[in-house]
Every structure is written in C-alpha cells, then in structure tokens.
Design a protein around this nucleic acid. Structure first.
Lengths: 239, 239
DNA sequence: TCAAAAGTGTTATGATTACACCCATGA
DNA sequence: TCATGGGTGTAATCATAACACTTTTGA
C-alpha cells in the first residue's frame, strides 16, 4: 500500500482522511539582514533521512488545496495571514521514489520580524538558508525551488508583493536592498527613490530611524488600501 | 467507488491504470478571422449531459502530467507540437459534484490553419466559441477559463507566444490585430510596426499578399531561432 | 571633523504617443 | 478614381540612467 509506505517513510501518522497521491510543498521565503532566505526541513527517518527538503504535507479530503497550504504553513510557522500563492503542480512519474505522487507547489513570503516562531513542525529540524547556500534537496524539490525563485522575480516587478518580506516600517533603502537581493542587480539610489515615491504607494510614518551612525532615514509603510484604491482607478504597478 | 461513478458519468471506459482523483482540463485557444476562440466540448451523458465544458481527461499512472496534457490534446485535435503550458491546480473540495477531484489546468495555443482537425474526441460535440460568446460551463471550468485568459494576456506581453496562434506567414497588421484581440485595446498602426520591427524577431519572407483589393502587404514569419539567439545574448522581449 | 548613508538636482538619451501624410492596388 | 489598407515621417512628451552634489548624524 502506498499510503502505508509513505506513513512509515515520513515517520508520521496520517490520522485524518487525506487525499492519496497528492501532496503540497511550500517554498517559504524570508528576508533577514539583507539576505533572501528559504525555510527548509530535515527529514528524521525513512529514505530521505538527514536530507533537506521543502516543508509539505497531505491534503485533507474536506479542505481546498489553498487551505491545505495555509494550514501546513500555520503548523510550520505559527503564523496566520501569510502571503501565499500557488506555483503549479509537479508531476513527473518518478519524482517520488516510493510511488506515484503529484505535488502542488506553493510559495509564501513572511516578515522577518515575525518568523523566529519556527515551532515544532512534524519533520525534524527546520532552518533558514540563504538562497546562495541552498543544499541539495530531496526528490524534485530543487526544481520546485528554482521555479519559485523565477516566479518571485517576475512577480515582484508586477505586484508590490515584496512588502510581505519587510517589517511594517522600513526605509527606502531597505526596500531597494530587498529588490536588489531578489532581482540580483545593483540599483541607483536616487532613481529608485524617485521612481517608488512617484507611485504614491508609500506612507511617510513621520518617524525616523534611531541610533544609526549617520543621518536617520524616514520610515515608510506600505498601505494596501492605497494600493487597492490606485488599482481600482486603473493604476498599474510596474517596477 | 469514485472511479466507477466517474466512468458512468462520462460514459467512457477507463482502460488503463489512471490516477484517481486527479484530472487535466485544457483551455485551447485559436485565432480565426480576427477573433480569439476557445475549443469546448459537450458532454453526451451523465449529470453534465448537454452542457459545455473544457476538454480534459485522466492522467495515466506512468505518464508525466505534461505528457498527459499533450496526449489529451493530440486525441482532441490530432496535432503534435502544440504550444502548451500549465496554468495551475484547481482544488476546491466541492468543485466536482461526484467526489473529490483535483484538476490541473493547461492552456494551449494552436494555429488557425491547422485546426479544422477536430477529430472524434471521446466526448460528444466539439466546437469553437468566440471568447465573447462563451456559454456557462460545467463545474469550475469558468474559473479555469478566466484564469487562462488572464494568464494569456500577461504572457503574450512577455514572451512571443502569440505567434503560435498565427499561420506561418502573416502581415504586420495580422499580428497587430491578434494583440488587439487578446489585450482588448486598439493600437496605433505606425507605432506597432516600428516597435515590432525594431526587435528583429520577424523575417521578411519576400512574399506579399495576393488578391487583396488594396496594396499588398509584406508577409513575415517569426523565427524561433532568431528569438533563441537574441535571448541567449540577453535580449528581453517586452511588448 | 570624518565617515556613512540620506536625500536633491541636472542632463543626455531613448522610448512612447499622437497624428499627418503618401503609396499601391483591385474594383 | 476611389476606397482600403500598407507604409513613412515627425514633433512633443515622458521615462530612464548616470552621476555630481548637498545634508544630517553619531562616533
């Protein structure tokens, strides 16, 4: 039985009715100290013992796939309201060695100031990796990860999703560094400022940085309401 | 048994081992006489009798999901080498009334001069619908269709996929009309010409239109080789 | 007063837009 | 010769890129 094999392999009991042969795998991005990071888990038992992979799990019979992804992320990080988007399904016949399993990839962006909460997830160890230091991954997880990175690069220029990686309040240079890190090229500070400010998506909080050994920068926040109003009027975010 | 129910419902025998609870549905686009069209099939039996839906089918145990989509399209149109891309998975628990089935959406673009070949597909009738005249669809197929249309609009501006909808040789105005139809706005002829020609993606075939009651236009073709060379050098198609 | 980053100004270049206009061809 | 679409020219405007420069702050 495939189900039985998989139970043994992950060392985890499937206690509710789940869908057979379909799983979810999540690429969770964070941004910390100027580096884009991905959350990986290490398997404790089975054929993938001691190897790193994407966090994932089964879909319950009675939940939508989006809710399954949300639930799995909640179990992993303890966080609700995470930015989450489906990538696509991955379905090579041999992608999973113990039977035919199709997986649906998701990616999530979470705020650096929230994510020390990596709770006891069902797999063994969970750890953040800089994207330049991702180890070899199990199954086809490298493919899923690479796909997610390409999608993130495309998406971040067409919708202001990058803000989901930043804390509530940030400086314009924080924002620029985030874009530089994701898109992998250096930008011009003055031009970046003007371009972003012209869009009217940022609110000046009136506050400034504290205890920095240089001129303190203004702190901005991104306002989803403004974004919504602008898009309703036909505004197009294009970065 | 879900399998049994579904067999009865579609009136079709599942003669090979297929994956349970996972299907594929395809949005097939064509371009004919200036109109963007979608290929729909009418169900002959079961609860969806006489209602239109997207062509789709089951995934075999031993084939990848991409190959399953290719195979289904081949069965539907008789064509190989069709432009085909996955949309995403659709998985609301109630999307299919007779059991929990997740479907993977695909979209395909086919050339108008090839597609009179709508062969005897396993479902009953198959017919092209202009996108302004799409009827109500079964299950969540309207959602899948709407998703595909949004994706097509986005994609056609970032990669030269539109050429998959045109015949080998076409005029610049054909091309412009295609873009106008997909993107739903009118363009400026002189500007369109220059913009496209500047990209160097089109080869002048040396031929011209025949039997037209106005000045004959040059016929161009799109060369994938050129596109490949340009992209290898760092060229970015952005329309 | 120095280093470091914040923030402003300026100019050249190129893309985009809007629209006027001439050209070729069959009916 | 007229209608129809093919195709060229041009000027105004706007976005982008490059980079010089001034400002503020803690150490």
């Amino acid at each position: 039985m495939l189900r039985k094999i998989i139970d043994d392999e992950s060392g985890k009991k499937v206690d509710e009715e789940v869908m057979n042969a379909i799983t979810i795998d999540c690429v969770v991005f964070g941004f910390n100290e100027g580096s884009l990071e991905v959350l990986l888990v290490k398997h404790a038992t089975g054929i993938s013992k001691n190897r790193w992979g994407l966090p994932g799990g089964w879909i319950k019979e009675k939940e939508s796939i989006n809710n399954a992804a949300k639930r799995l992320l909640k179990e992993l990080t303890g966080l609700n309201n995470i930015y989450l988007e489906q990538l696509q399904a991955f379905g090579e016949p041999k992608r999973f060695p113990l039977g035919r399993v199709i997986t649906i990839g998701y990616y999530a962006l979470i705020k650096s100031d929230d994510y020390d909460i990596v709770a006891g997830f069902t797999a063994a160890e969970a750890k953040w990796f800089k994207i330049s230091e991702i180890p070899e991954l199990i199954y086809d997880h490298s493919e899923i990860y690479n796909f997610s990175l390409r999608k993130l690069k495309r998406r971040v220029r067409q919708a202001p999703i990058g803000f989901n990686l930043l804390p509530e309040k940030f400086t314009l240079l924080d924002l620029m560094h985030l874009y530089e890190e994701i898109l992998e090229f250096k930008m011009d500070k003055p031009n970046f400022r003007r371009k972003f400010l012209k869009m009217k998506l940022l609110i000046d909080t009136g506050e400034k940085q504290k205890n920095v050994s240089h001129r303190a920068a203004k702190l901005f926040k991104f306002d989803k309401e403004i974004y919504k109003k602008l898009t309703e009027k036909g505004f197009i975010f294009e970065f």
